[in-house]
Amino acid sequence: MELTLGTPAMLFPAIALLLLAYTNRFLALASLIRNLKSQYVANQNPNLLGQIQSIRTRIIQVRNMQACGIMGFLLCVISMWLLYNSQNVLAGYAFGLSLLLLMISLLISFRETQISVEALEIELSDLEELVKKK
Rank of each mutant, 00 (worst) to 15 (best):
M1R: 02
L3M: 05
T4E: 03
T4S: 10
L5D: 01
G6W: 10
T7L: 03
A9R: 06
M10E: 11
L11A: 00
F12I: 15
F12G: 06
P13K: 02
I15V: 12
I15E: 05
L17I: 02
L18S: 03
L19D: 00
L19M: 06
L20H: 11
A21H: 02
T23R: 07
N24F: 09
R25Q: 12
L27W: 00
R34M: 13
N35M: 14
L36E: 09
S38C: 02
Q39A: 13
Q39Y: 03
V41C: 04
V41A: 06
V41Y: 08
A42Y: 10
N43L: 10
N45A: 11
P46K: 11
P46H: 10
N47L: 15
L48W: 00
L48T: 12
Q53W: 09
S54G: 15
S54N: 15
I55V: 12
I55N: 07
R56S: 05
R56P: 05
R58A: 12
Q61T: 01
V62E: 01
R63M: 14
N64L: 04
A67C: 01
C68T: 06
C68H: 06
G69F: 01
I70S: 00
M71P: 02
M71G: 05
G72E: 01
G72W: 05
F73M: 14
F73P: 02
V77S: 01
V77I: 15
V77A: 11
M80V: 03
W81P: 05
W81S: 09
W81L: 09
S86T: 11
N88Y: 12
L90R: 06
Y93T: 01
Y93C: 07
Y93V: 08
A94Y: 01
A94D: 00
G96D: 04
G96P: 01
L97D: 08
S98E: 03
L100K: 06
L101D: 06
M103V: 13
S105R: 03
L106D: 04
L107P: 12
I108R: 02
S109K: 09
S109E: 10
F110R: 09
T113H: 08
I115N: 14
I115M: 12
V117P: 06
A119H: 08
L120G: 14
E123W: 05
E123M: 10
E129N: 14
V131L: 12
K132Y: 14
